[in-house]
């Protein structure tokens, strides 16, 4: 991914781009994630300062939403859908398979890889589905899972 280390200047530009309006906080955090991939403590401090909010307020928003991770993700992020339509098509077995080929458990993260659940990608007519680095893939069986993971590895 094209992540850059946290930069106060980039952060300020993002905040200013939204007119430093507190009601744009959720949208700003999305841009932070887009650039930095996670929300470090200094981002919370800076947002609080520049938006005239308390740090507790900003922290409260960051912690409320699943998208706003406060630890760095791996170079690849694999999300396996765990919602009902995918369950009906064997998402639990897919998780077992993923955990064994990737050598890690759900919710675990390494420098290389983050493996986590997601609850519905709206792709439920072609379940089970996964999301890899923001791209959605459907009709996933073991073989297709392995192929997608292998193909994606070549990127780095």
């Amino acid at each position: 991914m094209t992540a850059i280390p946290y930069s106060k200047d980039v952060a300020s530009t993002i905040i200013a781009g939204h007119g430093a309006r507190p009601e744009m906080l959720v949208q700003m955090l999305h841009e932070f994630i887009h650039h930095f991939e996670w929300i470090p403590e200094e981002a919370i401090r800076q947002l609080a300062d520049e938006l005239n909010l308390s740090r507790a307020d900003v922290h409260g928003v960051v912690s409320f939403y699943h998208d706003f991770r406060t630890t760095p993700p791996g170079k690849r992020v694999i999300r396996i859908c765990q919602a009902e339509a995918c369950q009906a098509m064997g998402s639990a077995e897919l998780v077992n398979h993923a955990e064994s080929v990737l050598g890690m458990k759900m919710h675990e993260s390494s420098e290389e890889l983050t493996l986590e659940p997601v609850y519905c990608l709206g792709n439920c007519a072609c379940s089970p589905s996964i999301m890899v680095d923001g791209d959605i893939f459907g009709r996933i069986d073991r073989q297709r899972f392995d192929e997608i993971v292998a193909r994606r590895e070549q990127r780095y």
Binding site: R21, P22, E23, M24, L25, V26, Q27, L29, H30, G60, V61, F64, Y65, H66, D67, F68, V118, Y119
Partner: peptide, 20 residues
């Protein structure tokens, strides 16, 4: 931002205002 509850209309409005 990945919160199911934000589909409920008042939670959605809070989120549109930049809040939890």
């Amino acid at each position: 931002a990945g919160a199911y509850i934000c589909g409920e209309e008042t939670a959605m409005l809070e989120s549109l205002e930049g809040k939890r």
